[in-house]
């Protein structure tokens, strides 16, 4: 057993953290996105034959945890998850689009997972249905979605700029996570994987969301503790009050356990895929829950300043909420865990 990160992984974390400390902005035109493209981070898990770095899900997780910490609003999670999925696909379209995804000329993403009744239906070359609340939808050139074709679940790819696809950008409370609704009406589609590939794609997506959330939750705790150490009332730092210390300790337990759970799942999607079927949805459910709790306490323990637009606490709180409600949502993800664990039929 080898727990922990090696020197190259620690270097990667430092590089990404430095980058995010220097560059900001949101979306595909931002300075931070340009630097992410230049560093080749979009191809981190993609095989070298497609111009990628061929690293594992752990390296991807390191970048995601830092993006979560900084709450960077770029379509990295979606694009890298889609690229990882396409890298495993033998469909000719994968080889055609991967160089563009690795270079950042193309942006792709997965439809938000959900019950079979929500999936588009059709043939292996044309799909009809509504894909709602697609994260980073306004940015996407290519959309991957599970679909029902002749009664079978497949993983399909749909270009977003073609006839038969109507995109509506949705206004969002969490401004770091833009969304769009896609209406497919006989949209041209290509099958890129079978039902198992679709399930693995969702597992990877859920693990990626979990590790991003864990990084964000850790930042919420760090910022809150820093505030309590310096903010004085009644002539002493707030952090000396036991009522607040004990609440922070409970948050620390949540953050540590979410962090461990997220890393276990992130490692498992490549390192032990059979167990990822449980650990990935479990990690998403647990980390989103922990993130919501810690972000909520971040507002409360900052007092009045935490309720202002100027302070970043509300951005974390809104991201935490959207994390929990999107990507399948709380109830669906938990029932997925229950079914896969054999707790429910």
């Amino acid at each position: 057993m080898d727990v922990g990160f090696d020197a190259a992984q620690r270097d990667l974390r430092r590089t990404v953290r430095d980058l995010l400390d220097r560059e900001g902005g949101a979306g595909r035109g931002s300075p931070v996105w340009r630097r992410i493209r230049e560093l080749g981070l979009l191809g981190i898990t993609v095989g070298e034959r497609h111009g990628g770095a061929g690293a594992s899900s752990v390296e991807l997780g390191i970048v995601l945890a830092e993006l979560g910490r900084a709450l960077t609003a770029v379509p990295f999670l979606q694009t890298t998850v889609a690229a990882t999925v396409l890298d495993r696909s033998a469909a000719p379209v994968a080889a055609q689009v991967l160089p563009g995804l690795v270079a950042g000329d193309l942006v792709a993403g997965l439809a938000t997972p959900g019950p079979a009744s929500s999936l588009p239906v059709g043939t292996r070359s044309a799909l009809t249905g509504v894909l709602d609340n697609v994260v980073d939808g306004p940015h996407l050139d290519l959309l991957l979605t599970p679909a029902l074709v002749d009664g079978d679940t497949v993983l399909a790819a749909v270009r977003t700029d073609v006839a038969g696809v109507a995109r509506t950008t949705l206004p969002t409370v969490d401004r770091s996570r833009p969304q769009a609704r896609f209406v497919l009406d006989g949209a041209p589609a290509v099958v890129v994987g079978d039902a198992a590939a679709a399930a693995r794609a969702v597992d990877l997506l859920l693990a990626a969301v979990a590790v991003e959330s864990a990084g964000a939750a850790r930042h919420c705790l760090d910022a809150t503790v820093a505030h309590l150490r310096t903010r004085e009332q009644f002539g002493r730092p707030l952090g000396t009050f036991q009522a607040l210390q004990h609440r922070c300790a409970d948050l620390a337990v949540l953050v540590e356990s979410a962090w461990s759970t997220a890393w276990y799942a992130t490692w498992a999607v490549d390192g032990d895929p059979a167990t990822a079927a449980v650990s990935a949805p479990l990690a998403k459910a647990y980390c989103a829950d922990a993130f919501r709790a810690v972000a909520g306490e971040m507002i409360q323990l900052h007092g009045g300043i935490g309720f202002t637009w100027e302070h970043p606490a509300h951005r974390y709180f809104k991201r935490a909420t959207s994390t929990d409600l999107l990507f399948g949502g709380r109830a669906w993800v938990r029932s997925l865990v229950a079914r896969r664990a054999g707790l429910r039929p």
């Binding site: 705790l221 503790v225 309590l228 150490r229 730092p237 952090g239 000396t240 036991q242 607040l244 210390q245 004990h246 922070c248 300790a249 409970d250 620390a252 337990v253």
Partner: peptide, 12 residues
Amino acid sequence: RTVIAQRMLGLP
């Protein structure tokens, strides 16, 4: 909780 707050989080 007190140990975690003071030794792990560094609260005074």
